[in-house]
Design a binder for these strands. Structure first.
Lengths: 230, 230
DNA sequence: TCTTGTATCTCGTTT
DNA sequence: AAACGAGGTACAAGA
């Protein structure tokens, strides 16, 4: 990994065009040819970048013979026409480092975990609920959870961390399909999420879909396998 | 901005839990207290990070008295309980740089530009078209463009850079709603995008929605404010 | 290989 | 401040 602190201006031409005026920034060049341009703020997203695989070509001076330009960097994407052009006006730092391959990130607490917890604690949806199965297959994809309520009626559960309008649409399509199956019909829908957006709730209610807000921490607290990972 | 190349292990506890085993990585500390942890590969997303605003606290040694740990970095989010703990086993590089504030990115060619151009050149949809308004409000969100065709009938236009099935669903919802308004009905739909995916086109046609492919470069060429950005 | 769905999404804009 | 939509979304899992 090469780290350069440089005064530079940047142009990206590809799916859109973007321009960065002259300023001091960090240029990070990775082993796979990708380049990230970071300022001293913002979040993890670089101001501009080139995704791998890409090829970096450095040329002394400027193509247009501008004496203020020390180097012109051209970063060309290997599989598309996307191109990043970096004009370096001054270099304040330049260092190279051998990092080796990374063992990678281990995660816990994503939607898959939420699904596992709700499957184990299906009665948070109401008394008498029982699980039929997780990832119940349909022609248009698997339903997150299929269950039966206290009265024995089938219930399809769509699970999200953040309940958005898309999730309601998805559940609606599943319900339409499931209700064509005489062995299952009538199938009711439950939209379960840690947070449900107002618009999504309105749409769900309009379609007769129940909304349930889940407390992940509480559910994880009940689960005895919690906290064992690290 | 501080750049440290270090052998480290990392734990994140917040909206989820995540762990990085011991390896050599780049630690980038920004002026706002945010921290990014990058490996020499992947894409622009760091392996792990803390978003601003945050506070970095460095302590010599390890809390648990592990002699292999040189320093323990605690990065605490200012507005939540999110926390990043970095155990530094060895430092290979450590440098600090003054970057100043960045003038920021200038973009061209995003959906907003398309919408402005199409509003100005509404007749690319057909002869006699006239604009009613941009961002026409409805209960479930604003319609990109509302227009009248040559015959004086109302037309709702959904605009995308890339025409996907989601966009057709969105337009369908708008049309359903708009057609309940006796002052507007009947309202026809036009799905306009730079590229329309085959599946989206099939769905649109099936629902009686017209598809229009837009040539952004040509439309920008017509617009006399084009090319002034850079 | 391509498609689908999630994300510690980020980032802007608007309410 | 909260919510909504777009993104050069990125990224991983499944087909």
């Amino acid at each position: 990994m090469r780290l350069v602190i440089a005064e530079c201006s940047v142009d990206y031409i590809g799916r859109l065009k973007a321009h960065l005026p002259r300023a001091v920034r960090l240029l990070m060049v990775k082993a796979d040819g990708s380049v990230l341009i970071h300022s001293d703020g913002g979040s993890y997203k670089p101001l501009n970048w080139m995704s791998p695989p890409a090829r970096l070509h450095v040329e002394a001076g400027a193509e247009e013979e501008d004496p203020e330009v020390l180097e012109t960097w051209t970063v060309q994407a290997a599989k598309s026409d996307d191109r990043l052009i970096i004009r370096v006006h001054a270099k304040h730092h330049d260092s190279d480092h051998a990092l080796g391959t990374d063992p990678g990130l281990i995660k816990d607490g994503v939607e898959a975990d939420l699904q596992r917890l709700l499957a184990e604690q299906i009665d948070v949806l109401g008394p008498g609920y029982s699980l039929v199965r997780r990832e119940y297959p349909t022609a248009i994809g698997p339903v997150d959870l299929l269950a039966r309520d206290g009265a024995g009626h089938t219930v399809a559960v769509e699970l999200k961390r953040r309940g958005d309008i898309d999730g309601v649409e998805q559940l609606t399509r599943y319900l339409e399909l499931l209700n064509r199956d005489p062995l299952l019909a009538p199938v009711r829908g439950i939209f379960a999420a840690q947070q449900i957006k107002p618009q999504a709730r309105v749409l769900a209610v309009d379609r007769g879909i129940d909304c349930v807000t889940l407390d992940y921490d509480a559910m994880r607290g009940v689960d005895d396998s919690a906290g064992r990972l690290f």
